[in-house]
Simulated assay, not measured.
Amino acid sequence: MPHIKRAARILLFCALGLLLLRAALPVALQSYVNRTLDRAEDYDGRVGNVDLSLLAGSYSIENIEIVKSNGLVQQPLFSTQQLRFSLLWSALLGGTIVGEVDLTQPVLNFVDSTAEEERQSGAGEPWLNIANDLFPLRIDHLQIRDGRVVFLNSNASPPIDVSLQDINLIALNIANSRDLAKELTTLVSATANTTGSGNLAFDVSLTPNTQLPTFDINLEASDIGLTDFENLLNYYAPFDLEAGELDLALEMASDAGELTGYMRPVLHNIDVFSWKGDVEEDGDGLFRNLAELFTGAITEIFENQASNQFATEVEFSGTLDEPDIDTFAAIAAILRNAFVDALEARIDNSINLEAD
């Protein structure tokens, strides 16, 4: 009997120890995540509740925010309603330790400003090292649900606030370190909507273990209303677009930094110059009005009248640092669109790494 009582006490102490450990782990994990996020020089991290499931091999973190530490930028660089990390048991049973990450409503805020301290891009910070410490396993599956990427500039008048929204993304075989993936290709597929009514879809494959960038991108965008980006274009572009929609097809591949690809922009119902908008309301200067009027006239001359569109195809090659653009081919494409066949903003799958 004594040995039975002793065994019962040991089991009781073990059970209490496990309960205490289970209660302490979320707090310890929350502290660890906060310290890891704070390793960025100009940014601080904040996280909410942490929920840990030992049996499922998963944890979730609510209300993550990464904010600029000087307090001069109101919007966080990154925020997400919930981040969930879990082990992939099917792979674990096969002898491979990999994980899955699920992000709910993540938001990236990029901010431009006339003052350097009020800008926000996240550039120059060790984000890959931080991600490697938070998720030290190979990520087999990453999913983003209802994400947004926002660009803001409050110095513009009126202020600029444009975004990619409703981002739904799936990425497979992500490795933070070359030690975790020797010959794997990361695959990314995503859809999104632009400010207004535009739609965007892209597929990317990239090889993480090459010294120079190696990737293949296919992108299509449609029905992007240019007036939805009026403030952005007025502030950063040398002309006003009073009306029009943009369709775009892009194929681009880089084999260890050697670039090849094309971009096919198609502008519908384009209107660069509006007398009421430019002269009466905007009060643009004489030379700017003349430049916009000339641009509008050129666009009208080389527009495909049947389709009411102005389009070209820009081919490029060379390297990522110094791309070469085929100007003559772009001019020929303008003429072909205007007087032969209207171009379509559709990828033709002619650019890929295997073909280079």
Rank of each mutant, 00 (worst) to 15 (best):
Y43D: 07
L180M: 12
D348H: 08
S121M: 09
P106F: 02
V47P: 00
E300R: 12
S197N: 15
E183L: 08
S69P: 03
Q30S: 15
L21K: 07
Y236P: 01
D271K: 15
A297N: 11
V150L: 06
Q305P: 05
L152N: 03
G57T: 11
S79N: 08
I351Y: 04
V27E: 10
H3Y: 12
A355V: 05
L232M: 08
E303F: 05
P2K: 13
T195A: 02
G261P: 07
A181E: 14
M252N: 07
F110S: 02
A237Y: 11
I217K: 01
S254Y: 03
K276R: 10
S317G: 07
N304V: 10
A131N: 05
S254G: 00
P136F: 14
L108C: 03
C14K: 09
T80Q: 04
H268I: 07
V47F: 00
D341K: 06
I139L: 13
R9W: 15
R46M: 08
T295V: 07
N199A: 10
A311V: 02
R119T: 15
N337E: 07
D240G: 03
H141N: 14
L241S: 01
L11M: 11
I174M: 01
F78E: 09
L108E: 03
E118F: 09
E220S: 07
N209E: 09
L72C: 03
R35N: 11
N168I: 04
V47D: 00
G261F: 11
I130D: 02
N199D: 13
Q143V: 14
E354P: 00
V33T: 08
W127H: 04
S163F: 12
A237C: 09
G283W: 09
I139C: 00
S86E: 11
L54Q: 10
E258G: 01
V107G: 00
I347H: 01
L83N: 01
K182C: 09
S90V: 10
G196H: 05
L18W: 13
E344M: 06
N304Y: 07
V204Q: 02
K68W: 07
T186W: 08
N193K: 14
Q105V: 05
P323N: 06
Q211A: 14
F110Q: 06
L226I: 09
L93M: 13
G225I: 05
L16C: 06
D112T: 07
G45F: 03
N168L: 05
D42N: 14
Y236W: 12
R288N: 12
P106W: 03
E303V: 08
L290N: 10
D161Q: 14
D133Q: 14
N193M: 14
R39K: 13
L233W: 09
E41S: 15
E65D: 10
G99A: 08
L29D: 03
I298G: 06
A171Y: 09
V50A: 01
V27M: 08
W89E: 15
T312W: 01
C14Y: 10
I174Q: 00
A333C: 06
L241G: 00
P265N: 12
G147M: 02
